[in-house]
Simulated scan of single mutants.
Amino acid sequence: MRPAISIATSILVLALAGCSATGAARQDLPPEVDAAALDAAFAALVRRNAINTAGVAVIRDGRVAWTGYYGEQSPGVPASETTLFNVASITKVFTAETVLRLADAGLLPLDEPMAAHWVDPDIADDPRHGLLTPRMALSHTTGFPNWRFLTPDGKLAFQHEPGTAYGYSGEGYEYVARYAANRLGTDFGELVSEHLLAPLGIADAAYVIRKDSFDRLAQARDAEGRFHGHYCRPNGWCREPGSYSAADDMAITVVDLARFLVAAGDGEGYGASMRAERERVHVALGDQAVVDCAEAAPEACPREQGYGLGWQVLDYGDDTLLSHGGSDWSELALAYIHTRSGDGVVILFNAPGRHGLAAMPEALALVDPDSPLRGKYERWHRRAQESGGGD
């Protein structure tokens, strides 16, 4: 059984004496936890790793127990609980949770071939398009690459037979969103708002890019401190207001993401059978497994791990950990929740990739020393250092 989240207070106090607290907004942790030391630890971590903006939440027993905000939202504007963070690929779980709600309401089947309502022109001549289902898209088994623009000819194509193997794919999520929108005759961004965000009382999140959110959006800056524009990459490409990606670039506050996590952990919005399908491991990750059981302590090794529907799933028998991360040129994001205890963590870094990667293992050590995801980020950081990359 995985233990509930613990915070190594003694380590914080010993290692961080003399640091000053800067950004804690909520301090509702158990009395044995030194919240001021935790706040000071994150302030020091952000400074040491040159992170532009950071937001953190600790969830205990299904409620937000502590949040902290560090760095600047924009020049001269400190980060706060109203700051919107680009959560990169965590966007996918909002897409997935919307599809699950639509499926549970009988508005679309998870195992219906999507071809009746959407076929991408790039694969129209490949008969395998008729095999694609929403379940495959949500479990990353479409056979698609992550993004078509990464392929030699820039076109979408199958890399393996649909439904046969894991292959992380943002294209799969774009595909299922296009299918759902066509099937229901409604823009998918509106479906997210109507069936997911509005019922959860999340009004400020920007699944669809909104210009009225720009003044609260953490400014993404490169390693030299340059700001290239909201939703823009250093190469000059930008997303347009009114557009969205079903796989990337949603903006949300730390507290709203934590509230979403709690609702997801409770299975809010659909019945027990759909929740069980969501949390069942549909496909193993092979050498990309979250927990390296050869290195991990026995109690940290899940009995099964992989992707369910939308989420990475660590199945411990009497507990399930649902998680998802996000990584882009200027973001490193992580969110997870234990479904048994209702304990969880949100860590959002607005920083060049190598800065966030250097900070994430230490951040997890501060808020959840026994986190089964900590080893994943340590391994990732080591690989980035060895390759000289990370940005």
Rank of each mutant, 00 (worst) to 15 (best):
V77A: 05
L366F: 08
D249Y: 12
A115W: 00
D256R: 00
V87Y: 01
R135E: 13
T186F: 03
G286P: 12
G167L: 15
F85S: 13
N182I: 02
G344K: 06
T141L: 00
E362M: 12
V64N: 02
A41T: 07
G325A: 10
G306E: 05
A15R: 11
D122G: 08
A177W: 05
D187F: 03
N52H: 07
L373V: 08
V176R: 12
T82C: 00
R216V: 12
V208K: 09
L45E: 08
R148H: 09
R2T: 12
C232H: 06
W311S: 06
H230F: 11
Q73R: 14
D126W: 14
R226I: 10
S341V: 01
I51R: 07
G317R: 04
V176A: 10
H117A: 06
Q73H: 10
K211R: 15
C238P: 04
R280K: 09
E72F: 03
A363K: 04
K376D: 08
A41V: 01
Y166P: 14
L334A: 04
G225R: 10
P31K: 09
L100W: 05
F42N: 05
A43H: 14
Y377K: 11
S169L: 08
D28C: 09
I51V: 11
A198G: 06
I123N: 09
T142R: 04
S80C: 01
A246K: 02
A50K: 07
R275T: 08
S245K: 04
T53V: 00
D248W: 06
N52E: 11
P369D: 06
P121C: 04
P145V: 01
V281N: 08
A15P: 02
I5H: 06
G229L: 10
A223T: 12
G326H: 11
P78R: 14
G106I: 11
P372L: 15
E279A: 05
P75G: 06
T98W: 00
G267H: 00
T67I: 03
